[in-house]
Structures are given as C-alpha cells and as structure tokens.
Amino acid sequence: MIRFAQVDIGSNTAVPCALCATQAETPVFRPSEEISADVDSACRGWRSPPGPNVLFAGAEPFLHPHLPVLISGARSAGAQRIGVRTDGRALAQGDNARGSISAGVRLYEFVFLGGDAVAHDRLTAAPGSFQLALSGLGALRVAAERLGSEIALRGRVPVCVHNVRELPEVCAVLAREQCATIQLDLAPGLDVHSALPWLIAGAETGMVNGSWVAISGIEPSLLGSHALHATDPISLDGEVS
C-alpha cells in the first residue's frame, strides 16, 4: 500500500470530538526548522517505492504560520506526495485551495465527525464547520481541475461513542464528495462489538457510492466477510515528531 511518513507539525490533533475531550486545547506548533528536519530525514531514508510521501498532521496545518515553507521544503526534499490532515475549513477561504495544490499538496485528508451540519458542528463544537468543510472539498475539486493537477481526497472519521451511529451518513457524505478512501479510526476503549454493525454499515455505504472504507483499530477477523475493509490503501509510518 502507499506509505506516508506522518510528520506532526504540532499537537492537539485536528478536530477531536468535543464531547470526548476533557478540555479544549489550543494548538501548539513545532518550529518550522524541526519539522523540516523531520521531513528531510523521512525523505532521505526512503527506501521502498512509491515515495517519498509525507503527511502533515498533528494540528491544523492551515493554522501553521509557515505552511508554504514546509510544503516547499518537502518538495525540495524530494517528496512525491505531500498530504495534509485538516478540518477543511480553511480550504473554503481565500486562495487556500488553489494555493496549496499549486504548492504541491496532493493528498487532502478531511477529518469528519458527523454526517450533517447539526451532528458535525455539535461534535466539533465549531458552528458552521460542516458547511465550510464541504465548501473546502468543492473548492479543491474546482482548483484541481483548473490546474490540471491530480489530487486525492480522503475522509478520516475518528469513531467514538458519540458518532458511531452516524457512520453511514458520514460515509455517504464523504463518498458523495468524491473521497477515494474513508478511514474509520476507532477510538481506544470503544466497545467494538456494539460498534460493529455501524462500522459495516458505514463500509457498505461508502462502497456502493464508490469510496473505499478502511477500518482501523479493530481485529480484521471480527469483520468476518468484510475483513478486506481492514486494508487501507494509505499506510502511515509512526509519527515523526
């Protein structure tokens, strides 16, 4: 599968479930030099094709004051695929969609918690975030088409007790928005057995709408005939930070 080195640009992972979080955290960013050094070392040590590939995660990348520098640094280091994990709101604004594609970002991993504005905004505690994320996805598709660049969209759904029943809706939305893959990432401590029917319903909803749904954080055999859904076309190396 396609391996990405995950490079954390800060802490406070983008869009945690507000209902799970014990307290709101403000993002803390790492210095650009440190991040670039991690990117360099990941690219230099890349042995097995295809790659090198780097995913910026750990905090909302579009809030990092030096994101353009980080992206151009990754390009110079030889990265073939540069990805960002984002809540997507910034991509609806200004020139961010076109600018980031022009800079070299090719993988956009959107973190979604709910399948509609009410659920998503409640779980992110950010009113309007669902609509902005959808606008961001749309802006990316338009920009990619205009630029003639091939980008990949991907949904990431941290699954917890608060959104597990939302999974079919979330997968339907992400598939409709042309995400190639949707990753359902189970929170530690979630009761897998009671979550299972929702995970499979989410996987099937994504699939019949043309998106692959990968389920992580679960023993594949528990998925029975759906065990292939434990396979994710994107594999992340341990966080480099």
């Binding site: 599968m1 396609i2 295809p50 390009r75 990265a79 073939q80 695929r81 540069i82 070299g104 090719r106 993988l107 003639g148 660049s149 091939e150 980008i151 990949a152 991907r154 190639a180 893959t181 699939m207 043309g210 998106s211 692959w212 005939s225 759906h226 292939l228 859904h229 396979t231 076309p233 994107i234």
Partner: peptide, 26 residues
C-alpha cells in the same frame, strides 16, 4: 465471492487514485 470481487474493485480503484495523485504525475 461476488462481494469479494466488488470490494477488490473499489479498493483497487481507490488505490490507483491515491497513486496517481503525486507531484511528478503532471
């Protein structure tokens, strides 16, 4: 099975989309 084949098709298609999305491809 029928389901295995359809899953394989969608997984394969997703993978090729991710593979194509790279800087050098243009």
């Amino acid at each position: 099975s029928f389901g295995d084949l359809r899953r394989a098709e969608i997984l394969g298609t997703a993978l090729t989309r991710h593979y194509r999305a790279r800087i050098a491809s243009e």
